[in-house]
Structures are given as structure tokens and as C-alpha cells.
Lab assay of single mutants.
Amino acid sequence: EPEARKIVEKLINNGLSPEDVKRWAEKNNNPEVKKAAEEYQKR
């Protein structure tokens, strides 16, 4: 999901860690963003 990846990169560029992004995604019920954050961590 390229859109989710863009969101993850934007949040990380704004100073969030991938863990923060995953928590944000869970709080906002956004499994695509959570998955993208996990993939981002593996890179």
C-alpha cells in the first residue's frame, strides 16, 4: 500500500519512531499503516 508507506515516512520525518507510528496506527485503527511501519523497520 504506497499511500500507507507515504504516511509512515511522513510521520517518521516528523520525528516519530516506527514504534510510535505503529501505536498511532493502532489508535487510529489503521492496519495498513501499521503494516507499512513494520515493513519500514525491516529495511
Rank of each mutant, 00 (worst) to 15 (best):
E1Q: 12
E1C: 08
E1G: 09
E1D: 14
E1K: 11
E1M: 14
E1V: 11
P2Q: 15
P2N: 14
P2G: 15
P2A: 15
P2F: 15
P2I: 15
P2V: 15
E3N: 11
E3P: 07
E3H: 08
E3L: 08
A4N: 03
A4C: 04
A4Y: 08
A4M: 04
A4E: 04
A4S: 06
R5T: 13
R5C: 12
R5E: 12
R5L: 14
R5H: 14
R5Y: 15
R5Q: 14
R5N: 12
K6V: 10
K6P: 04
K6E: 13
K6R: 13
K6Y: 12
K6A: 14
K6I: 11
K6W: 12
I7G: 01
I7A: 04
I7E: 04
I7K: 03
I7Y: 07
I7Q: 06
I7L: 11
I7S: 02
V8R: 00
V8N: 01
V8F: 13
V8Q: 00
V8A: 05
V8W: 05
V8G: 00
V8E: 01
E9W: 11
E9S: 06
E9I: 12
E9G: 04
E9A: 09
K10C: 07
K10H: 14
K10M: 15
K10G: 11
L11E: 01
L11N: 01
L11H: 03
L11Y: 05
L11W: 10
L11K: 01
L11R: 00
L11A: 04
L11T: 01
I12P: 00
I12M: 11
I12G: 02
I12D: 00
I12Q: 02
I12A: 01
I12W: 03
I12T: 02
I12H: 03
I12C: 07
N13Y: 10
N13M: 14
N13V: 08
N13D: 10
N13L: 13
N13C: 10
N14Q: 15
N14K: 14
N14V: 09
N14D: 14
G15W: 02
G15P: 00
G15M: 03
G15L: 04
G15A: 03
G15F: 02
L16E: 02
L16G: 03
L16T: 03
L16D: 02
L16A: 06
S17T: 13
S17A: 05
S17H: 05
S17G: 05
S17N: 06
S17M: 04
S17D: 07
P18E: 04
P18A: 13
P18M: 12
P18K: 04
P18H: 06
P18S: 09
P18Q: 04
P18T: 08
P18L: 14
P18V: 15
E19T: 06
E19C: 06
E19G: 05
E19F: 05
E19I: 05
E19R: 04
E19V: 05
E19M: 06
D20R: 04
D20Q: 13
D20P: 00
D20K: 03
D20F: 05
D20C: 08
D20M: 09
D20E: 14
V21M: 03
V21T: 00
V21P: 00
K22N: 04
K22Q: 10
K22L: 14
K22S: 06
R23V: 13
R23P: 00
R23N: 09
R23M: 11
W24H: 01
W24D: 01
W24T: 01
W24K: 01
W24A: 01
W24R: 01
W24Y: 03
A25S: 03
A25E: 02
A25T: 01
A25I: 02
E26L: 06
E26Q: 07
E26P: 00
E26V: 09
K27I: 13
K27D: 13
K27C: 09
K27T: 10
N28C: 09
N28S: 07
N28D: 03
N28R: 06
N28I: 09
N28G: 03
N28V: 08
N29E: 06
N29P: 02
N29V: 04
N29Y: 05
N29F: 07
N29H: 11
N29I: 04
N30A: 13
N30I: 10
N30E: 12
N30Q: 14
N30G: 00
N30K: 14
N30T: 04
N30Y: 15
N30V: 10
P31T: 09
P31K: 08
E32H: 10
E32Y: 11
E32T: 09
E32F: 10
V33A: 04
V33T: 02
V33G: 01
V33F: 05
V33H: 02
V33I: 08
V33E: 01
K34N: 05
K34H: 10
K34F: 15
K34Q: 09
K34W: 15
K34P: 02
K34D: 03
K35L: 10
K35G: 04
K35Q: 10
K35R: 13
K35V: 08
A36H: 05
A36F: 10
A36W: 12
A37C: 04
A37N: 02
A37S: 03
A37D: 00
A37W: 05
A37T: 04
A37V: 13
A37Y: 05
E38D: 09
E38L: 08
E38Y: 05
E38C: 03
E38N: 05
E38Q: 06
E39V: 06
E39M: 08
E39W: 08
E39G: 05
E39T: 06
E39P: 01
Y40F: 10
Y40I: 06
Y40R: 02
Y40G: 01
Y40Q: 03
Y40M: 07
Y40W: 14
Y40E: 03
Q41A: 12
Q41G: 08
Q41M: 14
Q41C: 09
Q41T: 09
K42D: 09
K42M: 13
K42P: 06
K42A: 13
K42L: 13
K42N: 12
K42H: 11
K42W: 09
R43P: 07
R43S: 13
R43D: 12
R43F: 13
R43T: 13
R43N: 12
R43E: 14
R43W: 14
R43K: 13
